[in-house]
Amino acid sequence: MSFFVPLLLLCLFSFCFVKKVDAYGSFAEGAKQALPLVKSLLPFLACMLVAVELAKASGLYNLLDLLFSPFLQMVGIPAELSQLVILKPFSGSGSLAMLNDLLLTHGSDSYIGRCACVVYGTSETVFYIATIYFSGTSVKKLGVALWIGLFCSFLSCAVGCLLCRVL
């Protein structure tokens, strides 16, 4: 797997050589767009991270966990994973740390460990995506779309845990 992307890039660079395209100039031209793009993201990212960090510091996550964990267990998500399921839409790095913890405590080949991997691998940081995708647009209300995203992310946790039992 570690060869795949580098090989793809090598093909691309060799192709430039064959086609006599100015690779150096084209690359620089593209890379130039990175700074303005990220500059437009910064204020929105700051906003979102403030909420995430506050919720972490105040223990709001633990409260949410207590609130939702019975419901999550009803759809077959083990109690050990409810915090991961709740944190994932908000924070990629936070849930990665949590995945690491879970694997260390329960073992990476246990049922809990495998479920945790599938939950992490198939759900997305929905709020992060919503923030950076729509930061430069006039759209301020995502409404239904946000709920569809959250629902799908949650659905994948439930389906993933179910599949881990069978596969």
Partner: peptide
């Protein structure tokens, strides 16, 4: 910025050839 610079560079390269 670093990550996007790399990929936007690669994308532009792919576009130009």
């Amino acid at each position: 910025v670093g990550i996007y610079a790399l990929w936007l560079g690669v994308i532009n390269l792919a576009k130009n050839c």
